[in-house]
Amino acid sequence: MTPAEIREEVLDILRDIAPDDDISDIDDAKPFREQLELDSMDFLDIVMELRKRHRVQIPEEEYTELASMASTVAYLEPKMKDL
């Protein structure tokens, strides 16, 4: 997957987690938490969705890498480039 595709996939996951939220104008550089009020349970969801959809494993101590869209895509790129 290209970074653009990974970004699209993360957006899709966010849409799934928060069907009532508008995520179309998310700012990639800002933390998700500031824009979407995600809590720790939601971060678990992002991790679990990635595992369910793409078998990507993210160890608990690396959940912090998923803070913003930019950091998430950068972190996932090596793990998802061959998918």
Partner: peptide, 9 residues
């Protein structure tokens, strides 16, 4: 939170 977790609207 629970609606989100259960994927309910």
């Amino acid at each position: 939170r629970l609606l989100r977790q259960l994927r309910f609207k």
